[in-house]
Design a protein around this nucleic acid. Structure first.
Lengths: 219, 219
DNA sequence: GCGAAAAAATGCAGACACGGCAAGATGGTG
DNA sequence: CACCATCTTGCCGTGTCTGCATTTTTTCGC
């Protein structure tokens, strides 16, 4: 479900993508214009030229639209795919990349980019949404990883996603992933507070750095 | 605001405490009886013999009532107090104790105890509420710690809460605290999934163990 | 005790998020 | 073109949560 939808978009899917984009930009625009509270789903939908009912066909909550979160479910296959793609890389680095990839849309929406950053700067509460999302991802990750380890469906490459080895309890995996998620969150936070030059790279490097630093401190 | 409210409860405060307790038990009861979705604020309030309007004088959200979360604000003074109380203890251990203390009510409500655990077992989504709460606490903690470090209001004991030393960036502190929070969350999760014998001790020990294990793995 | 002041409870009205359902519009396909 | 799947939309309901004005309850000085 990650890199396999490239045969041909088709008008339908293009329109759907376009509508989603319009909803996201409308949401961000209205939040910046009227404030987070005063931006209602009705207004956002109206500005995007769809019914407010349709809004909920695209997003679960208002905040998801603002952040551009597609509720990315993470299947065991996705993990396996990622493991394969980043084979040989450092486990921590690989894990951080995976997590960043999941919330990338919310921080890298091209034209929305600057405005979305401004929103995050003005309403830092939205970061908690990131954390929730991250937690859900982590749960999914742990489950998926467990599945992989049990079924061995990732083949010989099952030792790369940072949760490698058979002697890792579920709790240990959760803690490791939570730490990575927290590092990513903090790195994004820093990055937003500054001007935010190049996206993923800076964040990734900083996140890994933070994890290393923690490792040193836990001695 | 932590250990100083012991002069004399007074009728008012006792009643208030009682009402809160009734709301919490009513919430838990109804969730177990009718399910999480079908338990409405109106029902909960009715069962607790207060108006549904009053409900929101006690809790911000329905889930807060179910979990028994009082929205514990953490002031710099609280931190200083805690630092003083756990002076000499291991920084990690001290930090874990602080975090556990903040969500203790939600896992240690005496008579509610078993039922609340059953709720958590049936609806694990509620754990995410814990995580939000934890994140908020962490933000508060980081801010408070910064204040302490700047003003030095904790006196000579400012080097105990796990965020000691002057060379700790905000991001580093966040990551460390997030890790501790994640460890506590996972420890509670495990503890709930089992029968849950003695509360705080088991959770604390396990959480610290998880953090140590992570430290070893981050080599 | 008693009466004023503070605090809490309540009722009411309403904004808003979100969901189910069924009818209508529209792109994909043989 | 016709058929099917999917998407949109309107309608209406339920439930969360808030502001405001009013009433009840507790506290406290006297």
């Amino acid at each position: 479900m990650v890199g396999m939808i490239s045969v041909k978009p088709g008008l339908r899917d293009r329109k759907r993508e376009e509508t989603r984009r319009r909803l996201e930009t409308s949401a961000v625009d209205l939040v910046l214009r009227n404030g987070l509270e005063r931006a209602t789903v009705d207004e956002i939908s109206a500005l995007a030229d769809v019914s407010s009912r349709t809004f909920f066909n695209y997003f679960d909550t208002k905040e998801d639209a603002i952040l551009g979160i597609h509720d990315a479910e993470l299947t065991p296959d996705d993990i396996a795919e990622h493991v394969r793609a980043t084979d040989g890389a450092d486990p921590i680095e690989s894990t951080v990349m995976l997590l960043i990839g999941l919330i990338r849309p919310s921080i890298q929406g091209q034209a929305l980019h600057d405005q979305r950053l401004e929103v995050l700067r003005r309403y830092p509460q939205l970061f908690s949404r990131h954390m929730i999302q991250m937690t859900r991802m982590i749960d999914g990750l742990v489950n998926a990883t467990t599945t992989i380890l049990e079924t061995g469906s990732a083949g010989a490459g099952a030792s790369g996603a940072g949760v490698s080895g058979a002697s890792v309890s579920r709790a240990e995996a959760e803690v490791l992933l939570t730490t990575c998620g927290g590092a990513v969150r903090s790195a994004i936070h820093e990055w937003v507070d500054n001007g935010a030059p190049e996206p993923a790279d800076v964040v990734r490097v900083r996140a890994v750095e933070l994890i290393r630093s923690l490792g040193a401190r836990l001695r």
